[in-house]
Amino acid sequence: MLLTSVILVLREVLEAALLLSILLAMSQYTGLAARWILMALAGGILGSIAYGASIGTVSEMFEGMGQELLNAAMQFVIYGLLLVIGMLLIWNRDGKQQYLKLLQWCMALAVALATLREGSEVYVYMIAFRHQIDSLQSVMLGALIGAGIGFSIGALFYYLLVGLARKRRLVVALVLLTLVAAGLCLQATQLLEQADWLPAGPPLWDSSALLPENSLVGQLCYALLGYEASPTLLAVSAYLGGLMLMALLLWATWMKTPSESGREVSNEFA
């Protein structure tokens, strides 16, 4: 049970922890107080308990596809939030302190949603073993190890980002956010395929022999790059589409910000 717990918890924690460390580093970059983190985590944890407790109801919605659809919807919402966060970060890169409230709320919501989605699965897993005393120790130890590895990677990753030079830090964070966001598009597409809302094709390739998804490196790539060992054509297209859209928008924002027109863009957006 230990390995199962480790893999399950690690996968969920790693995704949330990496997003959290990127956003935390960016929060520090813009000089925001890190209080929003507590709010976001509390909201996320409460939300994941609520979601985990009502997952049975959710599953039965939309002809049994509620789970897939809700998860996909959350992925898309997080994608949108990351896009907005990226643009706001670019606007603030010269320390302009614009829309900091909006930025803070977007970050809090993104972290809360990510925590909610990942946390609910851990919650369901934990309640499944609530009464199985004989495997409880193993499950708990595994969960601790998984969470420990996940948060450790998150913490080290945070210090890695914070240690970068200021300008490079922003660029690296934007690239990472874009990759994470693209990965969310891919996952959402897969969920919609699973729900038969999108046509599914055969996998485009299979790299599971090269880099299995359930290995530690595989998990890391999954959380950071949206790695999938055998994605379908549609999933890959969604990944690339999400990647390009975000990259393009961020690039356009970047190009426009130092000039006078930067203000117009921000007004349009607001």
């Binding site: 997952i55 789970q67 699973q194 055998s230 379908t232």
Partner: peptide, 10 residues
């Protein structure tokens, strides 16, 4: 992993 499927069943 091979089918790329994941779903919680209560």
């Amino acid at each position: 992993y091979e089918l790329n499927r994941e779903k919680v069943i209560m």
